[in-house]
């Protein structure tokens, strides 16, 4: 029964299936097949011996990681950087999308949109270079501070200013790109609702609160769940490009720690162990977020 149903479906929609085939192959080849490589987290992996030929070491790499004096610091830094980035970075494109939506002139709107999403296309190395120069003690930001009588400080050397620098630059770079999906969601809202609200005498703010926001809520929830699933992953390249030993206290995260230990010392097994640990936690948070979302707003990934 099921077989014929599936067979019929395949036959009827064969073009659709052929079109999705490359995507399925991609996922199998590059996302599922490599998963078996995760077993090197439990091995003393030596490339010359191969993945299967290397010796098993059990949980040694995990024990090494958990017993490092920096274990709690890197976990704390990773989570707080991610958390604050989410707290300030997540609502930003939604706000911008709401503002853009209210703009009357389409030309002005398009120009603003283009300008705000332009930074997304600048490569990270250049962005990090810009940040470095702007935050020098004789850089632009300090020039402005000095103009108003403040004292000059070298921001990238102070542990307490790393998080703001990271998050503000992240928002600057990603805000425009992030609005695209919300603007699409907003344009899907039925215009009759706005007309009805206007007749009822609702002002702009009330329209936003009672029509636009509920209208894009499903999109917002899905985006939130997806970002929560990434909470343990922070922008590794950007941190590597910005940090120095003087701000390890706030800037050293799991991935940079692993980079120094695992990659630079060829300790692949160790890197794999930490990566696996990271993924498991991410997955847990994703499940949790999905569950709560399902309970509270009936929106979920599955």
């Amino acid at each position: 029964m099921l077989k014929t149903k599936l067979g019929n479906d395949l036959l009827r929609n064969k073009w659709l299936y052929i079109m999705i085939l490359p995507v399925i192959i991609y996922y199998i080849m590059f996302h599922y097949v490599p998963m078996y490589g995760a077993i090197i987290a439990f091995k003393q992996y030596i490339p010359a011996k191969g993945i299967l030929g290397s010796d098993w070491v059990g949980f040694k790499h995990f024990e090494d990681f958990f017993s490092s004096i920096y274990f709690f610091r890197v976990i704390k830094n990773t989570i707080s950087l991610s958390f604050f980035n989410l707290l300030f970075g997540f609502p930003a494109p939604i706000l911008l999308a709401l503002l853009l939506n209210e703009l009357k002139s389409p030309l002005f709107r398009r120009i603003t949109q283009t300008i705000t999403y332009m930074p997304h296309f600048i490569t990270l190395v250049v962005v990090a270079g810009i940040i470095r120069y702007f935050t020098l003690s004789d850089g632009l930001i300090n020039d402005v501070i000095a103009l108003f009588g403040g004292t000059r400080t070298s921001f990238l050397q102070q542990p307490e200013s790393f998080r703001p620098i990271y998050i503000i630059s992240e928002i600057w770079q990603q805000i425009g790109w992030g609005t695209i999906i919300y603007l699409a969601a907003i344009s899907g809202i039925d215009q009759q609702q706005y007309e009805a609200a206007k007749i009822d005498g609702a002002n702009k703010l009330q329209q936003i609160r009672h029509i636009t926001l509920p209208g894009i809520l499903p999109t917002v929830m899905i985006m939130l769940i997806l970002s929560l699933g990434n909470i343990m992953n922070v922008g590794f390249e950007k941190i590597i490009l910005l940090y120095s030993a003087s701000i390890y206290e706030t800037a050293d995260v799991i991935s940079t720690f692993v980079y120094r230990k695992g990659i630079l010392e060829f300790n692949y097994g160790y890197s794999a162990a930490v990566g696996l640990f990271n993924s498991v936690i991410n997955f847990g948070i994703l499940l949790l977020a999905n569950y709560f979302s399902k309970r509270t707003s009936k929106n979920s990934l599955w």
Partner: peptide, 11 residues
């Protein structure tokens, strides 16, 4: 140099 801990060769 106030910034010595975070500068690169080009700077």
């Amino acid at each position: 140099d106030k910034d010595f801990a975070s500068i690169d060769a080009a700077t």
